[in-house]
Design a protein around this nucleic acid. Sequence first.
DNA 1: GAGTCAACGATTTTCGAAAATCCGTGTGAT
DNA 2: ATCACACGGATTTTCGAAAATCGTTGACTC
Lengths: 224, 224
Amino acid sequence: MDQKKPGGRTLAGDAYEAIRQSIRTGAVKPGDRLRFADLQALCGMSVTPVREALARLTAEGFTVLDDHRGYSVASLSLAELRDITAARQLCEGEALRLSVTKGDGDWEAGLVAAHHLMARIPQARDDIPSVMREDWEARHATFHAALIAACGSPILLEICEKLFSRADRYRRLSVSLTGGARDVTGEHRRLMELALARDAEGAVAALREHYGRTAAALEGFFKA
Amino acid sequence: MDQKKPGGRTLAGDAYEAIRQSIRTGAVKPGDRLRFADLQALCGMSVTPVREALARLTAEGFTVLDDHRGYSVASLSLAELRDITAARQLCEGEALRLSVTKGDGDWEAGLVAAHHLMARIPQARDDIPSVMREDWEARHATFHAALIAACGSPILLEICEKLFSRADRYRRLSVSLTGGARDVTGEHRRLMELALARDAEGAVAALREHYGRTAAALEGFFKA
DNA sequence: GAGTCAACGATTTTCGAAAATCCGTGTGAT
DNA sequence: ATCACACGGATTTTCGAAAATCGTTGACTC
């Protein structure tokens, strides 16, 4: 039945995950070319699903396509970091404002649950403190999604989700450079508390500052 | 050399344009399934480039994908119209604010030029007044892009472009229903004048109202 | 008669090879 | 010495068919 992969969906989906993971963890570096031959070897499949995976990754900004020259990993830059940060402050800020205003009991419950799961595990790995734990990053994403889940705008949610994943590589960089210097846990707790207290403006301000700090922590790195 | 198509790029790109045009003009209706056999016949090529085209269209919200059930044309709804409108008011509003603040002489020149080209031709076709002219729509898109071109944020520009094209089908619907009742030309002129006068807040307000009217004109339609 | 399940047809998804394209190298002319 | 151009290898892009999957029909049991 399933060709040795009980994933349950399509090979293209598996390829998407595999390549995305390679990019996020740094197995392939920004600017590197992504040759189909290599990716086929990595994913263990033919060219067609790999091509579809790259199309999706390109739509999300992880890779870029040059016609007839193939795909390569999108570069990182200070300019893009600032751009992403500003866009997130705008879009996710507005989504949070709406969510705090319109959220019901279920939204509160989901937020508390997501925060609890995230707070239960450490951010960095025990063996290599400069590397972010995969499961923490997943719960971190869930927490931020829970904050804005009640905004009522699928399009805004989609935009925020894409921006969040696009910021992922910068976030990892921040952790590897600054370590646990920042009180990220406290910032998250405060965000949740402001949201639950229905302090929309306060929560939005805290969120913007939250993102601003991540960007600021990396400003220095890019100048070197 | 080129296989009868002097397009100059890739077949996947041609397929993207062809299918997108079929969707925009209503040759295929919202909700319709898009069978690969039909699309191959329409585009005159094999399945691979068609598949890549659909992947791109899905990323832009024109089509939706059900695993193992193929692609279909995305539906239209009042809820989505409202959602798109709100997102555009937020993102394009902010982009316009930045653009008006930071734009230089070249930006002004580009804006004036784009407006002139758009104002030179009528919005609707002579033979069928309820159908929007293709070339007008293209210049209309260029004009709106020119308004925000100087915002300095590639990501914001990309978001706005996607939202603009996603609103395209609703815009056509609006033209076919209300005809030329609205003074769209005047609204555009006013937008340009406010931008050139560096009245950021006034321009943003005008833009929001501009979009709000398109949405309002369609509210009634969806309730029937 | 209602429900379950297996086989069929339609369609998507994937494969492996062929065709087209790009980039770098080397040759020859000015 | 510099430039233009053609050739060759590496890589992407596309093809046409095979494999996998889904929805449905129809027979069979309870």
